[in-house]
Design a protein around this nucleic acid. Structure first.
Length: 591
RNA sequence: GGGGUGGUAGUGCAGUCUGGCCUAACACAUCUGUCUGUCACACAGAAGAACGCGGGUUCGAAUCCCGUCCACCCCGCCA
């Protein structure tokens, strides 16, 4: 085997066209597939840019043809030869290079490869642990190559847009201080300060606010964030945010900028036009219509309040719910009237498992209804329901009568479950949504305390400031969530920059300024030194790429992700370290 | 911390509910042979797994039971 490259690569494997016929070229890449016809040998040669068929002809280059007999999948080779037309005009329309092939006269085997545990040319994916252990092979597959390229294109569009709009890319520290708020920190022991630790940032939140105080006006960073919490399909121990902060802005300025960024990304990367402005729902509207604070609005299936219709129903489950302060709501499942009785019973079971007393169903047929509560329904009820839901024949209406929270939670989940069941979700439909007007505070039952819903520096809506003194739980925040297809892409807020309001907020949370200083320290001091009004947002890059790639997990858009137990099968991290290393850190293990 | 699904040749899977017909099937990959227009090449043949690991029940366990490890999905958690 010759390991030296005998000459320069002239083209990539995705480049050659009919117009190149006759050229002498050198291609380098991996053996994607081989088709050995006994005489002729065809190799699909693959690199990042594509696949080119190269052909070994024993009549023309006997020795080279013999050497080609050694080639196996994933060997790395260099071939030199002449770009030739496919004979008889047999083009391969599946390949961009399908009009031509390279007749090989020089072959160099640059490297060999054992039978790989992952078949790069196959659509079939091995078990995830195998994929992660041999991630370098997994990343060779077309699907992963395209995901990683998509990600690079998205970050490029992000940088282009933000740079054009006056944002500076500024790095912030990775070794920072641990704060008690939020998620569990990843800690890094300090050698120079035995017994003390750095934390890895959960987000650059504090630093981006400091940069506003410093007068940088508009900042962004493609920022790595670390959270030591349990993993999910859309959560990794380290993930990436497009972190943005702006000075001298109000909420709508941030929303406008973020919309501009998102539409630019979709236009540049997928050539999709996303209409603006994005629809907005208040938190309250989102919950009461969809039962969830991040609704997927690619499909309708809104909850309708049926309290008016059923308030004096003879059906006790309805009338008693109203008297006891509960609510009656329903959703229409279009075209699901043909569902079997068993299916409907299953839905009822599911609802009960989730804490409902019962789920009632009504199927609208051409001129009648089928229903679990038919005998309780008055003719006018049916008419009212038809009107309320504008039903067509074969529609199903599901009704829950229960406590508000239960009804909302169950329908919130049912919407998601039913659309999957009905196959309503297709790739290519992207529906953004803003959820705004979150409550500024939530009541913490366990601790009998009022907590910040977003974080302690989130500004109240200007028109709600008066309620800080009278009814804090009524105060809405200048915060916003960006939702795409039912996935929370990111959240942000306008920050408090006035000391009197900050003090009030701390007071409501049961903190004196002194206590707050211990807890939040230098940020508070910085804010006092002439902080401009500022606010920002931080869309999650991994989730955005995942949705745009049509993948179900962010692991498929991260080059080297970890398992659900935060383990890296490729490198073995985390690992035990030597006594010497521990000694330097003055750390004794107790495991 | 809790619930669920899965673990069988290099890879993907069948078999497990209902134990014996399993001397574990099939496909891809691998190896050998034939083949000069294939492009998921085709055809003929071969090799490759004691069924995640440990224990138990049984005349007999891939299959039943207990424990355990790993992966994935979900709840909690993730301001």
């Amino acid at each position: 085997m010759v390991c030296l490259i005998f000459k320069k690569r002239t083209h990539t494997c995705g480049e050659l066209r009919a117009s190149d016929i006759g050229k002498e070229v050198t291609l380098m890449g991996w053996v994607h597939r081989r088709r050995d016809l006994g005489g002729l040998i065809f190799i699909d040669l693959r690199d990042r840019e594509g696949i080119t068929q190269v052909v070994f002809n024993p009549e023309k280059y006997k020795e080279i043809h013999e050497k080609a007999g050694e080639l196996k999948n994933e060997y790395v080779i260099a071939v030199g030869g002449q770009v030739s037309p496919r004979p008889d005009g047999i083009v391969n329309p599946k390949l961009s290079t399908g009009e031509i092939e390279v007749l090989v006269k020089d072959l160099d085997i640059l490297n060999t490869c054992p039978t790989p545990p992952i078949t790069v040319s196959s659509e079939v994916r091995p078990d995830e642990i195998t994929r992660l252990k041999y991630r370098y092979l997994d990343l060779r597959t077309g699907r992963m190559q395209s995901n990683i390229k998509l990600r690079a294109n998205i970050t490029k569009a992000t940088r282009d847009y933000l740079a054009e709009n006056g944002f500076l890319e500024i790095e912030t520290p990775i070794l920072i201080n641990s704060t008690p708020e939020g998620a569990r920190d990843y800690l890094v022991p300090s050698r120079l300060y035995p017994g003390k630790f750095y934390a890895l940032p959960q987000s650059p939140q504090i630093f981006k606010q400091l940069l506003m105080v410093s007068g940088f006006d508009r900042y962004y960073q493609i920022a790595r964030c670390f959270r030591d919490e349990d993993q999910r399909a859309d959560r990794q121990p380290e993930f990436t945010q497009i972190d943005i902060e702006m000075s001298f802005v109000e909420r709508d300025d941030v929303l406008d900028m973020a919309e501009g960024l998102m539409t630019r990304i979709f236009k540049d990367v997928l050539n999709i036009d996303i209409p603006r402005p994005f629809p907005r729902l208040s938190h309250e509207q989102a919950i009461s219509r969809y039962g969830i604070d991040k609704p997927d609005i690619r499909y309708d299936m809104k909850m309708e309040d049926l309290g008016e219709i059923f308030k004096d129903s003879a059906f006790k489950a309805f009338s008693e719910t109203i008297t006891s302060g509960g609510i009656i709501k329903g959703i229409k499942v279009e075209g699901y009237g043909g569902a079997s009785r068993k299916k409907l019973d299953d839905l009822n079971e599911k609802a009960k498992e989730m804490g409902a007393k019962a789920l009632f169903w009504i199927v609208f047929t051409e001129d009648n209804i089928k229903s679990s509560i038919k005998k309780f329904l008055r003719p006018e009820d049916i008419e009212n329901l038809k009107k309320k839901f504008s039903v067509s024949p074969n529609d199903l209406v599901l009704i829950l009568a229960d406590k508000k929270e239960i009804v909302h939670r169950i329908f919130g989940e049912f919407r998601i479950f039913l659309t999957e069941e009905l196959g309503l979700i297709k790739y290519g439909d992207f529906k953004f949504l803003w959820v705004i007007d979150f409550p500024l505070f939530t009541y913490n039952k366990e601790e009998d305390r009022i907590d910040a819903e977003h974080h302690a520096f989130t500004s109240p809506l200007p028109e709600d400031i008066e309620f800080l003194d009278t009814d804090p739980l009524k105060v809405r925040a200048s915060s916003y969530d960006l939702v795409l297809n039912g996935v929370e892409l990111g959240s942000g807020s306008i920050r408090i920059h006035r000391r009197d309001i900050q003090e009030k907020v701390f007071k409501i949370m049961g903190l004196t300024m002194e206590e707050a200083d211990v807890k939040f320290g230098f940020l508070l001091r910085a804010l006092e030194y002439g902080s401009p009004p500022h606010g920002g947002i931080a869309p999650g890059l991994d989730r955005l790429v995942m949705l745009m790639a049509g993948e179900k997990t962010i692991r498929d858009v991260i080059a080297f992700p970890k398992t659900q137990t935060a383990f890296c099968p490729l490198t073995g991290a985390p690992v035990t370290v030597s006594e010497k290393q521990l000694g330097e850190l003055k750390i004794k293990l107790d495991v």
